[in-house]
Nucleic acid binder design. Structure first.
Length: 271
DNA sequence: AAAAGCCCCTGGATGC
DNA sequence: TGCATCCAGGGGCTTT
């Protein structure tokens, strides 16, 4: 589910409300992708200072370390003072004096991992190889151009890999490439400078706009206040196989790249 | 070293 | 209605 916009929208929906919260209890459900890495009891009594985002990870800064959260494919967070009994897919509860942060994740590709600091394992292992933040100043055209020149894979897969730039997942990779007029199968190192410049701009614009729209709710995404996103209504190609292109009316194509679906317009994205 | 493939897991949609 | 198959916002690990 969650790409950068959904993760950022989630962060914005509870960061202020949880800041300063004192942990009273931690409940674990079924195992997630990795073990927590600390006894839940050791977190009790400690304070949440704030919430940052790095790529698709959320970093819960605490007075004793940092809790890394990843939503995987089907994860979502809620933060509320209600204490409804956990459902079968609620696998992590951080109960605080200000409310309960709950991770709901049917497929359990998500993770909650504790690290003493961002500079210690396992944080370094999980965050160490991530590319630059697409909405930050480090995502600059010269470096992006140079990095793409080193990659022979199709541009769609280079974006998904997150080694150059983070946060662009399956929806927004297809969307950004459409906006840039680039075919997803084009090898990264074959892109001309003007086209890379268009892609650079398209990535920033599509992600920023998706954050404004509250992210994409395809099946069940909602932010930590339970609100859905609306960007999916504006998708130009994602999920629109065989439907007419919104620009030229040509049927949108669906192909597989690295076990994932890719959508594009064969006319607007000639190469 | 880089690139391509294989899994992890559950549930919903579709087809017979 | 029942059962099999395919597909899904990710990404680490293994194999080429």
């Amino acid at each position: 589910m969650p790409e950068l916009p959904e993760v950022e929208v989630t962060r914005l929906s509870f960061a202020q409300r949880i800041a300063g919260a004192r942990i009273e209890r931690v409940r674990m459900g079924k195992p997630l992708r990795w073990p927590l890495g600390i006894s839940p009891d050791e977190l009790v009594g400690h304070m949440v200072l704030g919430v940052r985002r790095r790529g698709k990870y959320l970093l819960l800064d605490m007075d004793c370390g940092v809790l890394l959260l990843h939503l995987g494919m089907s994860g979502s967070l809620s933060f509320s003072q209600d204490r409804a009994d956990p459902g079968v897919h609620d696998h992590f509860d951080l109960v605080t004096n200000l409310g309960t942060l709950r991770l709901h994740d049917p497929r359990r590709f998500g993770a909650v991992v504790w690290a003493a600091s961002e500079l210690d394992a396992p944080a370094t292992k999980l965050l160490g190889k991530l590319g630059v933040e697409p909405l930050g100043n480090d995502f600059d055209l010269p470096r992006f151009t140079s990095a793409l020149g080193q990659k022979t894979s199709p541009i769609k897969q280079v974006l998904l890999a997150g080694e150059l730039v983070v946060g662009v997942g399956n929806i927004y990779a297809s969307e950004a490439l459409f906006l840039a007029g680039i075919r997803p199968t084009t090898r990264a190192n074959r892109l001309s400078r003007p086209r890379i410049a268009r892609l650079h701009k398209a990535i920033r614009e599509v992600l920023a706009k998706a954050v404004e729209k509250g992210g994409s709710t395809l099946r069940d995404f909602s932010n930590a206040q339970g609100e859905s996103g609306y960007f999916q209504l504006e998708a130009m190609v994602y999920g629109r196989a065989a439907e007419p292109c919104r620009v030229c009316a040509t049927p949108i194509k669906l192909i597989r790249q690295g076990q994932r679906s890719t959508f594009y317009c064969p006319v607007c994205q000639k190469s």
